[in-house]
Design a binder for these strands. Structure first.
Lengths: 172, 172
DNA sequence: TCTGGGGTTGCGGATTTCGCAGATGTGGCG
DNA sequence: CGCCACATCTGCGAAATCCGCAACCCCAGA
């Protein structure tokens, strides 16, 4: 059993508490391996994960709990919104004048906004919106987003068909 | 216990096997409620879910399994790729000439491509790319995507900061 | 060398998962 | 209307898993 260990646990491996400049904890190889296991199946038993990554069941459990508490990962059910009754989705590109981050914060607080990212492209912000129908979508884009002070202009990309949606980073 | 039931199980509730035109199964209110529970916590015990939605533990288990098998939802760990060692992400807007769907299919098969959606905006396709560094990203965009026959032009939006990422549809 | 703290391990006991057999209910058909 | 076929739900043991806890290990600092 000892022989199945990923590696000798020393040096660069043990520092799962160190933090990089942006405040997010640095992950060691073992935690990464645990995350990979849970990306394949979020309900995989701790014991099975432990066997795969070379740790006891209890150790895996504690690390998973910590990753959850730290917000490094979340274990959730994901669906294609279209099958769950949300008929309209769109990506909205936003041109901002002034403080980009404060606009992003406002978007983050909107429940219809699913995804917000600041970019270095011709848009300052990309936001994904999930709505129940056209009226709802129109309302969010025109009345709620375009109306924000600091939003210079927007461009919308209404979704026609979701082709791929994975959560398998590192598993490839 | 009987009194906690969501509703009298009849009529519009029972047809979880009917399919809408696009081939995706139609979900009834109970399955929706189960999904909501799992969107809050992907590891929530079946018994707890059953209590919440008014079903026995075994029934919940069967429905969850079916939703998984049908591909309606998946239970997985999701992370911010930046904390897991992927330094560069980008959204790529693509202008296509000819068959859009076949291009989308090719993108879907690329492991670096995380998300593919066909849109009705000025781009035909939006694809999200997750890479380890700049070289990798450049390689994927220039050598792999732009090189595809049928791709007329692309525009990239490199991610600077991920502000929001949720999976709470229906929970609001 | 001693001490402190983070991380790991090894345990029971409580809880959950799993498989199965039986009950229930609905739709189709003679 | 009666009856069968099919899908779904329930109840229940057995097995596996989860969970909390105390002991242990190892490295770093005093």
């Amino acid at each position: 059993m000892q022989s199945e260990r990923v590696a000798s646990r020393s040096a660069d491996q043990r520092d799962s508490s160190r933090e990089s400049r942006n405040g997010t904890p640095q992950l060691d190889a073992v935690s990464l391996a645990i995350i990979q296991q849970l990306q394949e199946d979020g309900r995989r038993p701790y014991a099975a994960i432990g066997k795969a990554v070379g740790l006891s069941e209890a150790a895996v459990r504690q690390r998973v709990q910590k990753l959850l508490d730290q917000g490094v990962m979340q274990i959730v059910a994901v669906t294609d919104p279209l099958t769950v009754g949300f008929r309209r989705q769109a990506m909205v590109g936003i041109h901002v004048e002034g403080d980009v981050e404060s606009i992003a914060d406002v978007l983050t607080d909107m429940s219809e906004v699913e995804y917000v990212v600041m970019t270095a492209g011709s848009f300052d912000i990309l936001a994904e919106i999930v709505c129940e129908d056209d009226d709802h979508l129109l309302d969010v884009i025109n009345k709620r987003i375009r109306a924000l002070p600091g939003v210079r202009s927007t461009e919308s990309f209404v979704y026609m068909k979701l082709k791929k949606q994975t959560y398998m980073w590192g598993t490839r």
